[in-house]
Structures are given as C-alpha cells and as structure tokens.
Nucleic acid binder design. Structure first.
Lengths: 227, 227
DNA sequence: CGGAATCCTCTTCGATACTG
DNA sequence: CAGTATCGAAGAGGATTCCG
C-alpha cells in the first residue's frame, strides 16, 4: 500500500484507505495515550522498523490524523500527537476494541504487553451509562516509571483521568490481573486473597470496580487454529 | 499478509489482524447487506481478483466471521454470509463509517457506487435515539433489479427494514441525491423542485427524513493531495 | 458458475549504514 | 536522538489456465 485507493465512493473504503496499512492503527492506539516521540513509538511497537514507522507517520500526518510538533527551546524533542480529527477516532477504536476483546484469548509467550494499555482499556471500555459514584486510583505494577491513572464513576458514565483526584481506594496489580478484574474473568475477592491485587483504602468498593467497564465476554474459539 | 500476527496482547491488534488485510473490510461491508455469492461479491468489489477474494473469504471463514453455505437442491448455489460473530461487527462498521463520512468528499469519475450501499448507509447512520414516528419507502434509482428499503423512526431510534411496511411517503432518487438528502448537504425542497427527488405520498414528511440519520459534516480537507 | 493452481511481476519490508 | 538512503529478500497481487 501507499497511496492506495479503492475506487469506491464509500465512507468505509475511505476510512480503510487511511487506517488499513499494517501498523497504522496501532500507531493511532499509542497516540490515544498522548503525544509520543519517534523512539517511544518504536519501543512500544516491537517489530516495526524505522522506515515503516516513518512511512506510516508520514501518511497519517499528510492526511491530517496527526501533527508533528517540535517542542522548542527547553526540551529539544519532536513529538507526534493526534490532531482534532485523529482524536475522533476514539469511538472507532472503542468499538473495535470491544470486538477484539472477544477474540483476545490468553497471551502467547512472546506477546508484548504495555502497562499503559490498561489506561487505554479504561478509556475504551468505560461504560457510557451512569455508574457507581466511586473513584479509584489504579497503579499498574511492573512499569518504570509507574503507570498510574484515576477512574471515576458518575451519572455521565465512567471517566478516566490522568491527573490525581480524591479516591475511595487504590488498586495495584500486574496488567493481566487488572485486565482479569475489569473483564470479570476473576472475582475481586479471589484476587485480593491470592495477593495478586493489592488494595489500599475502602476495600469494599473494589467489588464495584468491574461494573465501571463494559468488556464483552470472550467468544469460544470454535474455529481451528492450524498454524 | 496471511496469518500475520502482531506480537501484542491487545484487542485492537487482534481485531486488526482479522480485518486489516486489503479488501477484507469491504467484504464484510457487502455481507452486512445479506448473503452473497462469489461472483456477486466480485462484481460489487471492482478491482479485486478471484484469487484475492477467495483468499479473504477463506480467512474470514476460518476465523469464524462468516459461513460458507451450500444452498441444497432447488437453487444450486453457494453463498457467503456473516456468522453471529461477524454480525457483531456492525457497530464497528457504523463508527468507522461515521469517521469516513467526514473525509468522503466528492466522487471521483472512476469511483464505483452501488445502489445497495444506500440501504447500508441507512443502517449504519441510523440515529439511535428517539426519532420522528414516520415511515418511508426509499427507492434507489438506476439499479436493476431496483433497490428498495423501508425506514421507520420511533422511540427506539431509526430502523431500516427490508420487508414492506405501511409508509407515509415514498422517496425515489439517484444514490448521490439520496446521500445528499440524508447528510443534509442539500435541502429537501430544492431536491424536489429540481426533480432530482421524486416523492409520492405525504410530501410534508420529507423534511423529517434527514433527521432520522446522523451523518457527520465533512471535514474541510486542509491537507494537500499531491498524487 | 465457483473456485484452485501456476507463473510472473510489482511492492513492501528489514537491515544496515549514514546524516543532522 | 530522529530520522533518511540504499539494497537484497520476501511477499502479495494479477492474469491465465484448468477443473468440478
């Protein structure tokens, strides 16, 4: 692909021309978490080569999905950030993530997992209807520097915040444990008892945490996987 | 691509592995409109070669998105249809179409346009909140056999039906005219006066038709297009 | 009609090296 | 660090042929 175009007058075809190249969607995923430098992106996307990443960033910039900003004097760095148009991909990513969650299965041994993705999961799987008015600090173990974010339920649905707010309870666990909690694949009590989930604060609130999110149940993979 | 996998434990990566190959998403688009035969799909996807189409159908079947059914004695035909899992892609397609609609611009001279896509547009852009309780028959001109579908507003949102129902009014126009109407890029009165939009029935209802849908306004393409 | 198999071409990719 | 340039290898795609 490159300037590939389907010769079709259709919004889905247009969107796919933009996002359908390999790695492109994952670049957008990373930028949903905030502005990143070239080498940040490379580290977070294991397997992508410099030339391909540069190519994809170029396309996305050219098409107005992201902006390439040079941070001027103090920190001599250049970062990529989603444009206003690019940020409107969030609902698309949310639906796509909901679909993908059914097929996720278990991690393979060589699968990369980025602690920051849990924050993204919080954003994308956030319930959009009213949720319990509780606030949580979530700390993802195993990251340096630590990933920490805040989740707050309310009448307008669940919100994920980057900056601190008053919380009822703090949760701390490995990414996979937090994912199991959010997706209801493990009971909060069990996780706490086993020590996989550390809790500080009003421990009873923990049971309300999964209800803030809407992660579809996995689909049994009845299809074979003859690789 | 083929059995390509991103080595990432992430729902978006999984979904992209499934849908990211060229043509794949457009195959799903066509099947959202109903079961199709191999050559139907080829005709509706100008530019795809038999081998690529067969390859994509094979992948989608293997991964449980679609089913290959042999219609037995009477009509000796074999058709492809979305599985239950595949049908759950509809919300994804709806969000993606909303995004793509901003970038759609004007049709290029060689752009293919399928009358049936208007039915799909009705489905994907249907408003999900309560809409005016009016029913419309929509006839897309220039198709043989004619494409016809029914749209009904109501407290549960807009519904698109394939089978006839009592309607207040019938609209008949070319695909681009209907699209302009749905997306509010042309006023109903103007279209009627110019003769581009033919109306039978309670003509005053026509003005309520666009309100049944939620098509985002186009984004001005500030990016250059040096092809 | 509904594809599978073959051949050949055009892209695309990754590694390495190089530049500001 | 933040990329660009080059080049060989791998892969994807199109056309054609053939078979049920």
């Amino acid at each position: 692909m490159g300037g590939f175009r389907y010769a079709q007058f259709c919004p889905l075809a247009r969107a796919t021309e933009l996002l359908g190249e390999r790695w492109t969607l994952l670049v957008v995923r990373e930028l949903l978490l905030g502005a990143q430098r070239f080498s940040d992106l490379r580290r977070r996307l294991p397997g992508v080569s410099a030339s391909v990443l540069a190519d994809r960033l170029g396309h996305l910039e050219q098409r107005g999905i992201l902006e390439h900003r040079e941070l001027p004097p103090p920190a001599a760095a250049s970062v990529y950030a989603l444009s206003e148009l690019g940020r409107e991909l969030e609902p698309v990513m949310a639906e796509l993530a909901r679909f993908g969650a059914r097929l996720l299965g278990d991690p393979r041994p060589d699968d990369h997992i980025e602690p920051d993705w849990l924050r993204l999961a919080g954003m994308l799987f956030a319930r959009r209807e009213a949720t319990a008015p509780r606030a949580f600090r979530v700390r993802v173990a195993g990251a340096e520097p630590a990933v920490e974010f805040f989740v707050r339920g309310g009448p307008a649905g669940t919100q994920v915040l980057d900056s601190p707010c008053d919380v009822d309870v703090t949760l701390c666990a490995e990414p996979l444990v937090l994912l199991a909690l959010m997706s209801r694949r493990a009971a909060p009590d069990t996780l706490v008892e086993s020590g996989a989930l550390r809790v500080e604060g009003e421990i009873a609130s923990v049971c309300e945490f999964p209800a803030l999110f809407d992660v579809p149940a996995p689909t049994p993979n009845d299809g074979e996987d003859p690789s």
